[in-house]
Amino acid sequence: MLSPRLQRARKDYVSANKHHVSYTGHRTAARSAKELLCQMKAQARLRTVDGSEQPFSSLGWVRLVPSLPLEKLHQSAFKTCAVVTSAGAILRSGLGREIDNHDAVLRFNAAPTEGYERDVGNKTTIRIINSQILTNPRHRFNSSSIYKNVTLVAWDPAPYTVNLHQWYASPDYNLFGPYTERRKLQPDQPFYILHPSYVWQLWDVVQGNTQETSSPTLPRPAS
C-alpha cells in the first residue's frame, strides 16, 4: 500500500541492516494471545546489565548497578499493571483514573502526565527510556521531575550478535556516562539498563509471529 517512493525508502532502510541482524527462525502467525505470552516468557527472559560481564566487570559495574535485580523489585506488590501508550490516541480517552488504579504503571520515554491526568493518570511506577533520553539535553534527564521517584529502565540496541565490547565502544547513543553519573549521584533510585540480548530476544519473538520480514532494527521513539 506504500507509494513507490516510500517502498524504495523502506527497502533501503531494511537493506542497511545497521545492527547486522540475521534472523533464521521459523515464522508463524497462528498463535493465540495466550500462546504468544507463553512463548515470550519462555524465549525472552528479562535480563539487565549486572556488571558481571566484560567490559563492565573490569569497570566495577558490579558495585554500580542496583543490588536487587529488576525482576525482583516490588515483585510481591504488583498484582495488576497498566502499560500506557505515548501515542496521541490516548488523548480524550478519560482513562486516567483506571490507569492509576493499577498497582504498577509503566510509561515510556518523555511522555508527560502533568496537564493530561484525566486521560493518562499521574501515577508512574516504571519509566522505560531509550538512550536518547539520557544524552539529548532537551529531555533534561538530570533535572526533569518525570525521571525522579520512579524506577528507570534504559535501553540501547547492540549488534544482533550481542557483542558487549563493540556495544560499549560504539552505542547508538552513549548512555553509559549519564547512567554512571546518575547511579553515583542517586544510588537509592532503582535504575537499570536492559541487557541487549533480552531486547533482541523480544525482537525475535516478533519476527517468529509474522510472515513479513520486519525492519532489522529497533524502534526508537523519543516521546
Rank of each mutant, 00 (worst) to 15 (best):
L2A: 06
P4E: 05
A9S: 15
R10A: 14
K11W: 09
D12M: 14
D12W: 14
V14T: 11
S15A: 14
A16L: 15
N17F: 03
K18M: 05
H20Q: 08
H20F: 08
H20N: 15
T24K: 07
G25C: 01
R27Q: 12
A29Y: 04
A29C: 14
R31N: 12
A33Y: 03
L36T: 13
A42P: 08
R45M: 07
R45F: 05
L46M: 06
L46T: 10
R47V: 09
T48N: 02
V49F: 02
G51D: 13
Q54V: 01
F56V: 07
F56Q: 05
S57I: 09
S57H: 10
S58H: 01
V62P: 02
L64D: 01
L64Y: 04
V65Y: 01
P66S: 08
S67Q: 10
L68Y: 00
P69L: 08
L70M: 06
K72Y: 10
L73F: 13
L73H: 14
F78S: 10
T80N: 15
T80Q: 10
T80L: 11
V83L: 07
S86P: 06
I90K: 09
G94R: 11
R97K: 08
D100C: 04
H102Y: 05
H102T: 12
D103G: 12
V105C: 06
R107G: 13
F108V: 06
N109A: 05
A110Q: 07
G115S: 06
Y116P: 01
E117R: 00
E117Y: 00
V120W: 00
V120C: 02
V120K: 01
N122R: 15
K123L: 03
I126Y: 14
I128Q: 00
P137D: 11
P137V: 04
R138L: 14
R138W: 09
F141T: 11
S144C: 10
S144W: 09
K148S: 10
V150D: 07
L152H: 01
V153D: 04
D156Y: 01
Y160M: 12
T161E: 08
Q166D: 12
W167I: 14
W167Q: 00
Y173Q: 13
N174S: 11
L175R: 12
L175D: 08
L175F: 02
F176Y: 08
T180E: 11
R182F: 10
Q189V: 12
Q189Y: 07
Y192W: 04
I193G: 07
L194S: 00
P196I: 08
Y198L: 08
Y198C: 02
V199W: 06
V199Y: 03
L202I: 09
W203N: 03
G208I: 00
G208R: 10
Q211C: 15
S215G: 13
P216V: 14
P216A: 08
P216S: 03
P216D: 02
T217K: 11
P219F: 04
P219N: 13
P219E: 13
P221G: 13
S223Y: 08
S223K: 07
S223E: 12
